[in-house]
Design a protein around this nucleic acid. Structure first.
Lengths: 341, 341
DNA sequence: ATTATTATCGAAAACGTTTTCGAAAACTCC
DNA sequence: GGAGTTTTCGAAAACGTTTTCGATAATAAT
């Protein structure tokens, strides 16, 4: 019932622990005969190295940590998917923590992972994050570290992002090309870099096309929910009945907007056109189907892990590491909610 | 730059490693004076115990493994959420692996977790799973183990489930109570216990209400996707134009069914009523809103972890462990897709 | 002052591996 | 058959903790 150890194999075979270890790792300085004996006994005894001992000895656990704001979220669960797939392919396991958009939890979780001595950390910031001390702690300890999507510009580390400003700009110009003259924007919370950037992209597109930027047309989400979408839709119609286009921070909220318009017989896209962001699965299921910006979430996960792995390997060789930033391409998905003209 | 160790603290303080260790763990046989000195130095040096060494010494890692078929899935991501929240509350971290509904991958992942020497494993079987050897291996090694949702009746371990048969029975009787006379069933793949049970619940409800069970009215999903829902909807209308109700294995597929009917001007619920299973978020967003069975996914996660923790603690005390099964309650959520009468 | 008791400490073993380095054994070559 | 070379092996240290058990020092009891 006890776990098999090198010692056991060594004793039953009458050889030393060293030789057993070397035989199993195919060292050149152990004879073919001995190797065979060891391999066979290890097989029948179902020997697997004690990973606790290996970790201690090699100072690595082949485990990385991942902190994200929300697991139950189309975008993030796709990123998770990419990360754990790529990690597994490379012999790494992934510990996942959820900050629930809380800075306090996020800090605690960073500590947890540092104490756990994971080989690296991948992270997307919570909406509350504006304090960087816990992040700087990771950098200070020289723990391999990658941020994706919701990043901090102040931290010098590897990053995987999209060009939020450019993507938002294109989304709004798409609305304009479809004939929209008065475009509202439902933006994300104030802190996150990407909701700032998307807002800036919106503003730039409005100004470049001489549409008169009006801050009254900008509505700010607190929780970024379906219900908030419904509420803002009602508010926009009330405040500005002549709005003919809305650019929404993310599809979930946009779906709320459309749901409200459907319930109140406001025709999308004829009266108002709506474009979202993220291309989550549901956007092609609702009526009318939602136009949106496709954000390559799975690839973000894959790239994040690979950047992390690069840093892990560099540091293992004691080479100095230069952070990289990968910018992934987005694309407009045109569907029914912006059709016409 | 090097990590602080007990040895360092001991040397700078001129005392033994033993005493430092005991001071930090508040042993009674070290004087208040020494404790204070140690604690203070540990604080300024930012000492945190090397978890690799602790793991090796204590033979536990305070980490559990979780294997699920799909991360990007409303139900499973909610379960994940429950598990990692409850785990964190109890000082455990969670390694997540995704079997992608593949038996081969599932087996490899079980091996990975066993070799990693996690303190316990929580698992939901893939659709392909009909071979139990890898599961029995977990039991044989006496690794604390809990299955949820997609379980195997042949394995004697703790389980967290719903009563699929009863819930399905109620769903179908709900359709009947709304006037349906000819009810089709889009069932899940052949292997999983819960798709079998839901089918049995369907059959029982049909028979009990003298509706003439007809196996031609049962359609079997292979991949359980949105598109499959659309295809089966088309097929059902073609094969049996007089079908007036459909019970669908899960909401995602049911949403596909409704999408097809919407596109082809077949009125739901007037011509055909549809009920799904799981109560995922989208079911309340589409038009018409989908009636469904609410499955308490987050609670499933919480309960799974707690059962696992019980087993971990029991085994640590070398007490023998008796597996438990927790059955959570489901409920019918009545929405537009079954309204009328 | 002697013994008994308690408070405080540390040596050492153990957890199971990996790797360095030296020693012994087995060869080669003349 | 001896010097040199190559195979093959194992002792030992190290990774950083935890915990047992014995030793010493300080205190209390007689």
């Amino acid at each position: 019932m006890k776990e098999t150890t090198l010692k056991q194999i060594a004793e039953t075979l009458g050889i030393s622990i060293t030789t057993v270890s070397k035989a199993l790792k195919n060292y050149p300085d152990v004879s073919a005969k001995t190797k065979k004996k060891v391999l066979e006994l290890a097989q029948t005894l179902q020997y697997t190295p004690n990973s606790f001992a290996v970790n201690l000895r090699t100072r690595e656990s082949r485990t990385i940590g991942l902190i994200i704001p929300e697991v139950v979220h189309h975008f993030f669960s796709n990123v998770i998917n990419g990360i754990i797939a790529e990690a597994e392919k490379n012999g790494y396991l992934v510990i996942i923590l959820q900050s629930n958009e809380s800075l306090e939890l996020e800090k605690k979780q960073v500590d947890l992972l540092i104490n756990k001595r994971v080989d690296g950390i991948i992270m997307s910031l919570s909406n509350e994050s504006n304090d960087d001390e816990h992040i700087k702690d990771i950098i200070r300890r020289e723990i391999p570290f990658v941020m994706f999507d919701k990043i901090s510009k102040l931290i010098n580390c590897s990053k995987v992002i999209i060009n939020d400003q450019k993507a938002a700009f294109e989304a709004v110009e798409h609305l304009i090309s479809k004939g929209c003259k008065k475009i509202a924007h439902i933006r994300g919370p104030v802190n996150p870099q990407n909701s700032i950037d998307r807002f800036l992209g919106y503003k730039k597109a409005i100004e470049k096309n001489n549409l008169n930027f009006d801050s009254k047309l900008v509505y700010t989400c607190k929780n970024v929910t379906f219900d908030e979408g419904k509420e803002f839709a009602a508010q926009i119609i009330k405040d500005h009945p002549d709005v003919d286009g809305i650019f929404v921070i993310t599809d979930l909220v946009a779906v709320g907007v459309i749901a409200y318009f459907n319930e109140n017989n406001i025709n999308v896209p004829n009266q108002i056109k709506v474009i979202g962001f993220s291309n989550w699965f549901m956007s092609q299921v609702i009526t009318p189907k939602l136009s949106t910006i496709d954000q390559p979430s799975y690839e973000m996960g894959v790239n994040s892990f690979n950047l992390l792995l690069e840093e892990i390997n560099q540091r293992k060789e004691l080479l100095e590491f230069k952070p990289k930033t990968i910018e992934l391409q987005t694309s407009i998905i045109e569907r029914e909610s912006t059709s016409g003209n």
